[in-house]
Simulated assay, not measured.
Amino acid sequence: MTVFGCRICDTALTVPVSRVALPVHANQKYGNGPGSLAPALEPGTFAVNPLPSGSPWRRWAELEAGEAEALGWYAPRFSISAGPVGQVLLAPGDVHGAVIDPALVGDSACCGLDGGEPNMVCVTCGAPVAIRIDDCGLRQATWLDPLTTHVLEDGPGPHPVLDWADLIDQRPGIPPSEPGGGWHPMWAAAAASALAHLLAASGGDPISIPNHQVAKVFRPTLDRLLDPGSTGPERTLVLAGPDIPDTGGHFALIPEHPQTGELWPVAPPVKPIPLAWDAWRYLAFHRTPKPVGRSVPIPPEALPALLPGHRFEPDGQIFLSVLARLPEVRQPRLRAIYDRGRPYSYTYCSF
Rank of each mutant, 00 (worst) to 15 (best):
H286S: 08
R340I: 00
G293A: 11
P300A: 12
T288C: 03
E313F: 15
V296E: 14
K290Y: 12
P265V: 04
V296C: 10
E301R: 09
R333D: 15
A284P: 02
P269W: 02
V270C: 12
S295W: 13
H286G: 03
L239E: 05
P304W: 06
E262N: 10
A276E: 11
E256Y: 06
E234A: 11
A305P: 09
A267L: 07
G249L: 12
P233Q: 07
L237Q: 03
L307A: 06
D278M: 06
D339N: 11
V238D: 01
Q317T: 10
V266L: 01
R342D: 01
L239K: 02
D278P: 01
A302R: 14
D246W: 09
Q317L: 07
P299H: 04
G309M: 10
Q331W: 13
P274F: 03
R335T: 14
S295C: 10
S321T: 15
P245W: 07
G316P: 05
A284S: 14
H250A: 14
P327Y: 08
K271E: 14
L334G: 02
A240G: 07
G261E: 09
A284Q: 09
L237C: 01
R342C: 05
P245D: 11
A240K: 06
R311L: 06
G249S: 12
A336S: 14
R235P: 10
L263S: 08
H250T: 11
A240C: 00
I244N: 07
S295R: 11
D278Y: 02
